[in-house]
């Protein structure tokens, strides 16, 4: 009877596999060394954590949180949502347009258009790689404190995110139906919107929903640098060590993010189900 030989553990290049593992362990050790991670320090500071928790959850006392205060936080929360929604919408539209040109061989197909495609891709990367807090600081400087700066930040962030993933989704679409249309005389522009975009739609919707979730999370912290929303309230309360009211805001943020994430995953499932019928 013929019996198959057991293959070696690291394929046919045992030395390379072994070295890869060693390298990974060395890099990990090096990074933990630099990260200042320390169990002792974490345990030693439990006193401060306890103090924060004690002051954050005081005995119930209606004088601590007035209705006026709560109303103000509520308005700030609404503003956060509005900033995230408006910014995402603008970012989706602009990101989609840029993605059309960043997508390989989609709108044009010539050596010269490669340069255009590359430039648009780089522009999108620039939007994506500069962190949102940095954009927020820039926009606060340009348009001043408030929600508008936050909306612009969310927009730029969304362009960076959606520009990249929209382009990849459209690149992944099977081009044969687009080719069949162009073989029958359709313009390139029409084949993109009649054949490629419809085929990419489920992916585009899913990505948009993820973008909105991301925008909600980042719009919360934008207030820290003065770009509108509830983050500003949170920061000032933390500065005054009003941990109890800070906790109220953290709770509100938690609920907002949770609701948006649940809704977004509900819609994503709806899209999936529609595709499987």
């Amino acid at each position: 009877m013929h019996r198959a030989a057991v293959p070696p553990r690291f394929g046919n290049r045992p030395i390379a596999g072994f070295l890869a593992v060693i390298l990974f362990l060395l890099v990990s050790a090096w990074c933990f060394g630099g990260s200042g991670f320390s169990i002792a320090q974490l345990l030693g500071s439990s006193e401060y954590l306890l103090r924060f928790l004690r002051e954050a959850f005081p005995p119930i006392d209606e004088h601590r949180l007035t209705f006026e205060q709560f109303h103000r936080y509520w308005l700030a929360l609404i503003e956060t949502f509005q900033m995230a929604f408006a910014g995402t919408l603008l970012g989706l539209v602009i990101g989609f347009i840029l993605a059309l040109f960043a997508s390989r061989g989609l709108m044009f197909e010539s050596p010269r258009s490669n340069l255009l495609q590359w430039s648009v891709k780089m522009l999108i990367s620039l939007f994506r790689t500069v962190p949102d807090l940095v954009w927020a600081i820039i926009f606060v400087m340009v348009v001043g404190l408030g929600a508008f700066a936050g909306t612009l930040t969310i927009m730029v962030d969304t362009i960076g995110f959606c520009g990249r993933f929209f382009a990849e989704e459209m690149e992944d679409v099977d081009r044969s139906s687009a080719e069949a249309l162009s073989a029958s005389g359709a313009r390139r522009f029409d084949t993109v919107f009649a054949a490629v975009v419809p085929a990419a739609t489920p992916g585009l919707i899913t990505t948009s929903l993820f973008a909105f979730e991301k925008a909600i999370r980042s719009s919360v912290v934008l207030g820290l640098v003065g770009a509108g929303g509830i983050g500003l309230e949170l920061q000032s309360l933390m500065n005054w060590m009003a941990y109890d009211r800070a906790m109220v805001i953290i709770g509100m943020i938690f609920v907002l993010v949770l609701v948006v994430e649940q809704l977004s995953s509900y819609f994503r499932k709806l899209v999936m189900k529609n595709e499987q019928q």
């Binding site: 044969s176 139906s177 069949a180 162009s182 005389g185 419809p198 085929a199 489920p202």
Partner: peptide, 20 residues
């Protein structure tokens, strides 16, 4: 080229249609 192509109907072996 387009106005010439539009006088020719094309059918491939498969994947002719936009699936969605």
């Amino acid at each position: 080229l387009r106005s010439t192509r539009c006088r020719v109907g094309v059918v491939f072996q498969r994947h002719n249609l936009v699936p969605r």
